[in-house]
């Protein structure tokens, strides 16, 4: 969250059983965002590691009015960083975890 002002975390424990994750995103540092956004609200959404892209989710969030177009890159980056971390964690866990 340091550089985008946004925080993304798992909304539910990742049981590594399938490619779908429940993620939660919220604004941790409003000063770092350019456009209008809702401050104290967390947005929970599902993310499929095989079919979804962070850019696509960010675009949907902008279209839904959660964030301004000028912040869509920051939203996509925050989601991408978290998803990358989750993938790395999954790779480290033994098969059938």
């Amino acid at each position: 969250a340091e550089d985008t002002g946004l925080r993304v975390e798992l909304a539910e424990e990742d049981d590594c059983s399938n490619s779908s994750l429940a993620l939660r995103l919220w604004v941790e540092d409003p000063k770092k965002l350019k456009g209008k956004h809702k401050d104290n609200e967390a947005i929970e959404f599902s993310f499929n590691l095989e079919t979804d892209t962070p850019e696509e989710v960010a675009y949907e969030m902008v279209k839904s009015g959660f964030f301004h177009e000028s912040d869509s890159k920051a939203v996509a980056k925050s989601i991408r960083d978290r998803v990358t971390l989750i993938k790395k964690t999954r790779e480290k866990k033994p098969a059938g975890w």
Partner: peptide, 27 residues
């Protein structure tokens, strides 16, 4: 709960709820 709002966009569901006070950084 009344505080949770569900928004659908292009088949994706977003559940909006207040951020717990404990998670908000003192800005």
């Amino acid at each position: 709960s009344s505080l949770t709002q569900v928004v659908h966009s292009a088949g994706r569901r977003f559940i909006v709820s207040p951020v717990p006070e404990s998670r908000l950084r003192e800005s």
